[in-house]
C-alpha cells in the first residue's frame, strides 16, 4: 500500500509566475556573495588543510588521531592484547607481540601500526582497550596527505603522552606499576 501525502503548496502569485523577478532576487544573493568573497577572501571559511588547521573548540569531543600512552619509564602502556585489532571494523591495526625479559608485565607490542588511510575513526579501539593505552585525543585531524605512506602510523609515531600522564589505570598495568615501584621510578 503506497501512502499518499498531499502537499499544499502555496499558489504562486503573478509576480512569481513570471519568474523573472524571483530569478533576479536569487541572482542578487549569489552575486552579492560572489563579490563579497572576491574582494574580501578573508571571510571564506575554508581552511587550506592539511597545511593549515584550526584549533578545535575546547569543549569538542572529537575523535582525533590515535596515540599510545607511555609509562613513566618510557615503555608503551600497551600490552599487545589485540583487543583493538579485534574490535577494529576497518582492519587497520596491525600488532606483533613480543616479550620483555625482566619486566613483570611480560608482553609488549613490537609492532603497532595503524593505517590511517583505512581507519574510520570509530573509536572502537579506544573502547576495547583494557589497559587505557590507546586514546584518540591528540586533536590532530588526519586524512590529508600527498601519499599513502604518510598515513601509516607506526609505534614510534603513536607513542605520546599528554600533560598529566601517565595514568595508572588498566588490569595488567597493576603489574607494570608494581615493577616500576620496585625500581623506584614511580
Amino acid at each position: 500500500m503506497i501512502s499518499v501525502k498531499k502537499v499544499n503548496n502555496k499558489p504562486l502569485n503573478l509576480l512569481e509566475k513570471i519568474y523573472l523577478w524571483e530569478i533576479a532576487r536569487g541572482l542578487s544573493v549569489t552575486i552579492r556573495h560572489f563579490f563579497a568573497n572576491l574582494f574580501n577572501p578573508g571571510n571564506i571559511l575554508t581552511v587550506p588543510y592539511p597545511e593549515k588547521t584550526i584549533p578545535l573548540p575546547g569543549n569538542a569531543r572529537f575523535r582525533t588521531r590515535h596515540r599510545l600512552k607511555v609509562r613513566s619509564d618510557g615503555s608503551p602502556k600497551c600490552v599487545a592484547c589485540f583487543m583493538c585489532q579485534t574490535a577494529c571494523p576497518a582492519y587497520c591495526i596491525r600488532i606483533e607481540a613480543a616479550e620483555y625479559t625482566e619486566n613483570t608485565v611480560e608482553k609488549y607490542p613490537a609492532v603497532f601500526d595503524i593505517d590511517l588511510s583505512r581507519c574510520v575513526m570509530c573509536g572502537m579501539c579506544v573502547e576495547a582497550c583494557p589497559e587505557d593505552a590507546i586514546a584518540m585525543d591528540t586533536e590532530e585531524l588526519t586524512g590529508g596527505a600527498l601519499n599513502r605512506g604518510e598515513l601509516l602510523m607506526t609505534k614510534d609515531g603513536l607513542l605520546r603522552n599528554l600533560p598529566g600522564e601517565p595514568s595508572r589505570k588498566g588490569a595488567a598495568n597493576r603489574l607494570a606499576n608494581e615493577y616500576l615501584k620496585s625500581r623506584g621510578e614511580e
Partner: peptide, 11 residues
Amino acid sequence: HPLDCPICDQA
C-alpha cells in the same frame, strides 16, 4: 586471580 587477561595466552 591476577586478572591479567590482556597478557594471558589463555584469554
